[in-house]
């Protein structure tokens, strides 16, 4: 029995940047000191992420995460940390909502250039079972924001 595998179309999901960030994330670190932290758990698959943020005035100065998970969830956490750094809680909540729309629908009519770094994850919308991998770090980050008193 032969069933030749061709994964060419899988590069829509596993784009270069996702492979790279999944393998060598830049923000996988235990941030300390920090102003807010929260964990995200996906008991269905065993993914786990903890996100910590440090504030400077009214903006996020730094974000870091510790994750055990797949390439999608680690890359998503890492790109998220890039995207939210230097932004206010209000901006970050808007980003989170747009990200959610983008990965669920594959489109984001309201997205501006601030979403560009997150666009490599758009392919997730075709993989329903993987949506949670992409959104878990964002849910944890919103929890961390809340804990910091900026929720």
């Amino acid at each position: 029995m032969s069933q030749a595998a061709s994964f060419d179309d899988m590069r829509d999901l596993y784009q270069e940047v996702i492979m790279a960030r999944g393998r060598h994330p830049q923000h996988q670190l235990r941030l300390d000191p920090y102003d807010g932290a929260a964990k995200g758990d996906n008991p269905m698959c065993g993914d786990r992420v903890e996100v910590r943020i440090r504030m400077a005035g009214d903006t996020i100065a730094e974000a870091g995460f510790e994750a055990r998970g797949c390439a999608i969830s680690v890359a998503s956490a890492d790109l998220m940390a890039d995207a939210i750094t230097g932004r206010t809680p209000t901006e970050v909540r808007t980003l989170a909502e747009r990200f959610r729309v983008m990965v669920h629908t594959g489109a984001c009519p309201d997205c501006g250039p601030e979403m560009d770094p997150l666009r490599p994850l758009v392919g997730v919308h075709e993989f329903k079972s993987r949506l949670k991998c992409a959104t878990l770090p964002w849910d944890a980050m919103l929890g961390a924001l809340k804990e910091s008193g900026h929720g």
């Binding site: 069933q3 595998a5 899988m10 698959c45 993914d47 998970g69 797949c70 999608i72 079972s129 993987r130």
Partner: peptide, 22 residues
């Protein structure tokens, strides 16, 4: 070098259904 979920997603693409997780 590959998490079980990523393995399962690629296997599925070739018609192979396995479970991945805990």
């Amino acid at each position: 070098g590959a998490h079980a979920h990523d393995v399962a997603t690629l296997l599925d693409r070739n018609g192979v259904a396995v479970r991945a997780g805990n």
